[in-house]
Design a protein around this nucleic acid. Structure first.
Lengths: 239, 239
DNA sequence: CGCAGTGTTGAAGCATATCAACTTGGGTGG
DNA sequence: CCACCCAAGTTGATATGCTTCAACACTGCG
């Protein structure tokens, strides 16, 4: 069931059989959410953390005027609120952007991992640090890249992350967001997103149809995005 | 020497005497950097992590066209590259924005903490998670706040963070950045920053002169920023 | 004293937002 | 099974926030 998580952690260091078994043993309670439902509400203090097995989810904050900013996108294998374990109180909400299948880990069990499994603890810590690295990359994209490059960068990132958990097929992957949601990810208006997407499509960089993104020219896409995947820490080494 | 770190960690949970002593014992090698020097270069694999004792530092990335985006600001008491311990390879540089006094912690010693001091491990983990929460808040500010509100939000954040480590005096704090650096933090041009700052000054919200920011109207500043400090996790509770 | 980095100002242009209308397509109830 | 409906996508027109460029003032320092 939790194969995607094992692929994720396993892409950064070798997991022992004991570690794998322990993770399997604490990740048992599963749940389903419909698109639009909150997996975790802002301000809550969940006693468990949520591993996404299938679907797309997003962390977000809503402003006083009703506008929304999505601060992270999550896919299969992502521990969407692992940070809630040390942090305790959610400072943002997490919403399902498609039907989501999740499984829960009690914070008591995570605590036990920190008491007895130092290596696994470091890998879970690393998992939250990669989230942070992605946040930084988004900040760079929002602050200093053109919107066109920002979009290209996001596509590169999603492709690499989905590849780790085997959710790509050739040069394509499922991408169930609406343009409205995508605009909330990028921090731009839907209209401008729509026009920029069309330009990229016309140029033959990538297409996005029927909830599927297909990369047409990977070289060119990376070039436009100035994409360098180091920040994703996809490299198996002792941690 | 490391009082600022103890204030930082101690603002989130109670530190035992044993934990304090251990931290003191591993943080011994100190160094000084001049403004403009790199504390940690991009692409490096430092065998230690750097605690900032005094001064301002920034994490940054440089784009192909030479423009720069600062992704984090660090002040006294911040472990500027604690994340390098599990991550290993730096995906960004860290530069001193003022003369900086730092002290180093060997990764071997940090590893020992994860093996024997689970509670302290969780507090260090939390420290890196607060960095992540700040990143998210910056993403929100860049994407969905006016530049004016973004600036106000940053001032609120810095004031609260500096208060934790006792680096405020009344409604003022030292802020040694140039407007050029500040613009790289916000992801805007210097010219526009300059004009927006003047508007805020004219309105009597805050002033920024001779490397010192003074908040004139804290209520109004928070209002403009829509500032809510939960994300900083400044609350002592069992972690 | 003079230079270099910083701060300030005004003018002009561009990127992006906003507003409004229209199209398209999938889902649903009559 | 068709008709309609609503959400999503698309388009064009207009408005504006922000950038860029260029010039000048200020200040600290060698």
């Amino acid at each position: 069931m939790i194969e995607a998580l094992l692929l994720n952690l396993g892409s950064r260091d070798v997991l022992s059989g004991e570690e794998e078994n322990l993770l399997r043993s604490i990740l048992v309670k599963d749940r389903h959410f419909a698109a639009g439902e909150d997996l975790v509400p802002e301000g809550s203090r969940p006693p468990y953390s949520t591993l996404l097995l299938d679907g797309f989810a997003a962390r977000y904050k809503v402003m006083a005027d009703g506008s929304r900013q999505i601060t992270a996108l999550h896919v299969a294998g992502d521990f969407v609120d692992l940070h809630a374990f040390p942090v305790k109180k959610m400072d943002h909400g997490i919403v399902a952007l498609s039907p989501c299948h999740v499984v829960l880990a009690d914070h008591a069990d995570l605590r036990a991992i920190t008491e007895r499994m130092p290596h696994l603890t470091r890998l879970l810590w690393l998992d939250t640090l990669v989230d942070g690295a992605i946040h930084r990359e988004w900040i760079v994209a929002m602050g200093r890249r053109s919107k066109r490059a920002q979009i290209a960068h996001l596509v590169c990132e999603l492709f690499m992350r989905l590849q780790v958990v085997r959710r790509t097929r050739g040069e394509s992957f499922q991408f169930p967001l609406t343009q409205i949601e995508m605009a909330d990810v990028l921090g731009i208006s839907v209209v401008h997103l729509n026009k920029t997407l069309q330009a990229l499509r016309r140029e033959g960089v990538f297409t996005w149809e029927t909830r599927t993104i297909t990369i047409v020219d990977w070289e060119r896409l990376q070039e436009i995005a100035e994409f360098d995947p180091v920040y994703l820490s996809i490299s198996r080494e002792p941690r």
